[in-house]
Design a binder for these strands. Structure first.
Lengths: 159, 159
DNA sequence: CGGAATTAGGATAAACTGCTCCGCAAAGAG
DNA sequence: CTCTTTGCGGAGCAGTTTATCCTAATTCCG
């Protein structure tokens, strides 16, 4: 209804990383498996999140992805600026190229306040907050309880 | 941000027809030219709106499209049921296949009320209302003031 | 009837999004 | 140094959406 699959994967991945021990790189493979999304595609998205300065990446053994310093404070609007491109929040509901308060489409005045609410929500939700919500166990990040990954994580943690 | 181009064209076209004299068929060509959208593509959309029982179509000379009786009362949610398919309002923001109050993604509780507002707005806006808003001149339906179509409409009206 | 205008419907092209694959570069371990 | 593991980057495939084109079928008019 609102977000592209790319954005959905990106947000999920970022939240997942934010739930993991800080400063310890998380593998793309781990993330993909945990979220149950295509690894090769997720890899591309991870790249763009690195270019968007939200993540650090490390190659080779003990490689993976970490949040950049302070990135836990990133809100979803900032994430979407990377994945949907800027101007994602600008478009007219009816698709008009120009639709301002002055020259408005017939939905404009009614739509504006809702849009504001959407944007406010996206701005208010930070990775930190969302990660915490997941960690408390109240909310889920993936469709299926993933029983495969847990041992992999343990391997890493005991290594 | 929310609607496909197809839906945007469909809504615009329906509003436009609703602003035209009732019972007098409007040509696809006229609509496309007025809205500045690709005529051949619009024709396909018009077909689906006919199949969705919102429009009558007439072939041959003096052909074109009319709103069905009572179709001015159609709200945008009904239009979207045709153009976006049913279940358009069901999806989880983060793309989870299952995301109910019981098993929710971390955005779920915050998103739900906004979604409700969006749906309420779509349900509240009827073609009638929107057409009136355009007719009063307060709102625009197309990007550019279309100077080409006016004479064509006159031809039809004086014929 | 014959011709012009108009929608119906099918085939197809073009563009975009989601997704895969492969070879390369980097980095740690032996 | 070599091998393995990991991300990087480019090419390309697949499905969907957007858009075009062409051939009917229908309807009006002369």
């Amino acid at each position: 209804m609102i977000l592209s699959r790319t954005s959905q994967y990106a947000i999920q991945a970022l939240i997942f990383i934010a739930t993991q021990p800080k400063g310890q790189p998380v593998l793309n493979r781990q993330i993909a498996s945990h979220l149950n999304v295509p690894p090769a595609y997720l890899a591309k998205i991870m790249q763009s999140l690195c270019k968007g300065n939200l993540l650090y990446s490390f190659r080779g053994r003990l490689g993976g992805f970490c949040l950049r310093e302070g990135a836990e404070k990133t809100d979803l609007l900032q994430v979407l600026a990377i994945t949907e491109g800027p101007g994602f929040a600008q478009d007219c509901v009816l698709g008009l190229k120009v639709c301002s308060d002055a020259t408005a489409c017939p939905m404009h005045t009614k739509w504006q306040p809702i849009k504001k609410k959407v944007l406010a929500l996206l701005k208010e939700q930070t990775l930190e907050k969302l990660a915490r919500a997941v960690q408390t166990g109240k909310y889920r990040l993936a469709d299926l309880p993933n029983t495969v990954l847990a041992p992999q994580r343990l391997e890493r943690e005991t290594a």
